[in-house]
Every structure is written in structure tokens, then in C-alpha cells.
Design a protein around this nucleic acid. Structure first.
Lengths: 141, 141
DNA sequence: ATTTAATTACGAATTATTTCGTAGATGTTT
DNA sequence: AAACATCTACGAAATAATTCGTAATTAAAT
């Protein structure tokens, strides 16, 4: 009864999380540089700073303020966060049907043979698991 | 050249579109009743009305105002809209990789054998299309 | 015809998100 | 040490989305 789960990140917050997931802990300066590169318009330094401060309050990131330039790092895992966002998205857009989402994703989009093969492998794995009422199915970190 | 494409619907707008897609053209009253049922908290009538008026400006819906109670209907197709939202979502959350999205959707989720079979069928269809550089690939309504 | 009910239009409060300017502190350079 | 650069904190403007109240209109009921 406590330890509120971190909330759904906003678009800007997610963008920052991507940087942190990809590059590891970083200063505001470094994060801001990455963001500015990926965009048409530069992001103001204090904009990035402000969002990071809000993310800190929301416990989406942690920071090391030992040095003058604080170092931020992601406090939420990539897969978990993506799963959370995916759930919301499936509910809002596909009425909760993950199948519809997958059909749409594969159907109206260019998918390479390699990717298709990977998905087949995944399907095989899932069916094996399904047909094997294996002792305990943990694995949900 | 003109005819701006309708913009990405917001969450509330999407909720209303779901009602219209599912039940066809409807009055504000009818739409509001559906929304109120699907929620914990009732929606105010004028709230629904207001959103519909905004959706009309955005060309997400059309309306028939012949009678006093105007009748609204969706002006965007379900699949197209879902596809549009999916694109944005894949970009924002999975860095543009539809594969990652599918893996996440199938991996961290309970999927029935029947659904898996449907996905397999779809994969087969796609691979046939890919291996058949068929003249012109239309089929996108 | 009056009253009552339902409907539309519209302004505006509320909340969330994004953005940035400015002040103050701290370090660096000359 | 004085000037300069960099950093954090914070307030607040700008924008978007959601919500609802109120007034005006029109229809229905009495």
C-alpha cells in the first residue's frame, strides 16, 4: 500500500526516455543535444531541463546531483513502459483487441521477409508455451 | 490541390468515433447516452455536443441539421483512422519499428490459439504478395 | 396561449503539456 | 579579482483538450 507506479509519460517525456534508454545516464546538456538533433526545430535548454525536473517528481527518472551538472537516468524500463503505453493505446484505438492492432500493423504496412520470419518464430514460441502448461510461468519482471 | 486531410482525433473524439462506427449516425443525445454507459462518470450533454461541434470543424464528422436534433455521422473511416493513429504511436513509442510493436503486443499478452492462427494466415498472405511482384498493388481503399 | 422540455451555440473555467525567460549560484578564464 | 559562461530553480506564458453553465431557440404538452 504505497509506492505509486510511475504514470504514463507524455510525448516529450517519452522522447527523453528514448534518449536515456539508448545512451544511458546523461546530463541535461547531452540530452538536449540529442533532442535537438532529432528535430527540425531546436529545443530550448531550459525546456529540456524543466521536463526532466517534472519527470523527476513523477519518478520517471532519477538524478545524481553530486556534481554541478546533474546526471539523469531512466527510472522506468523500456519494455515495461512500452507495454503500459501499448495497453492504453490498444484500449483507446482498437477497443482492447490486440489482434486487430497486429493485423492493422502488419496489413497496412511494408514488412520485410526478415521481420516476418521473426514474427513466425515468436508465434512458434508462443504456441509451444500455450501447449505446454509448464509448471510456473513467471518471466514477468 | 487542397482538401486537407482530417487531423488526428483526440481521445474524446476517438471515443465518439467508436460510437458512430459501431452504431451508425446518431443524435447528440444518443451518442451521449452511449458514452455515459461506457464510463464510470456520466458525461455532460453539452460536453458531448461541444466536442461534436469541434469535430465538425475538423471534418471528423458530418451532420444532418434538417431536423432540430442534428444527426452526426463519422466522416473518417475506421481502418484509416486507426492506421493513422498507429503510425504516430509506432513512431513515438517504438521508434518507428512496427516489428517491435508486434513483438511486444504478442509477447507480453495472452493470445488465444485462434488469434495466433489468424495472424499466421495473414503472414502467409503477406509473403505471397511479397514473393509475387504483382503488376500493381492496389487494394488500399 | 402558456408553460415546460429539449436542443444548439457559445463563452469560459479547468487542467495538462510544452515552452521559455530571468534570477541566482557556481564554476572558468583572463 | 573581474568578467564570462554554465547550470539550476522557478514563474509564467502559450497552446491544447476537456468540461460545463447559460442564453436563445424551437418543439411539445397542457
Amino acid at each position: 500500500m504505497s509506492k505509486a507506479p510511475p504514470p504514463k509519460p507524455t510525448d516529450s517525456e517519452l522522447e527523453i526516455l528514448h534518449v536515456l534508454w539508448q545512451h544511458g545516464p546523461a546530463t541535461v546538456r547531452a540530452i538536449n543535444d540529442h533532442l535537438s538533433q532529432r528535430r527540425q526545430v531546436e529545443v530550448g535548454y531550459t525546456t529540456t531541463l524543466k521536463i526532466l525536473q517534472l519527470m523527476l517528481e513523477k519518478a520517471l527518472v532519477r538524478r545524481d546531483d553530486a556534481d554541478r551538472s546533474h546526471v539523469y537516468r531512466a527510472a522506468v524500463r523500456e519494455q515495461e513502459t512500452q507495454g503500459l503505453l501499448l495497453d492504453k493505446f490498444v484500449d483507446a484505438t482498437f477497443g482492447g483487441s490486440a489482434l486487430k492492432l497486429v493485423m492493422q500493423a502488419l496489413g497496412s504496412r511494408q514488412t520485410s521477409a526478415d521481420e516476418l520470419a521473426q514474427i513466425r518464430r515468436l508465434l512458434n514460441d508462443i504456441e509451444i508455451q500455450n501447449s505446454t502448461p509448464n509448471s510456473d510461468d513467471n518471466d514477468h519482471a
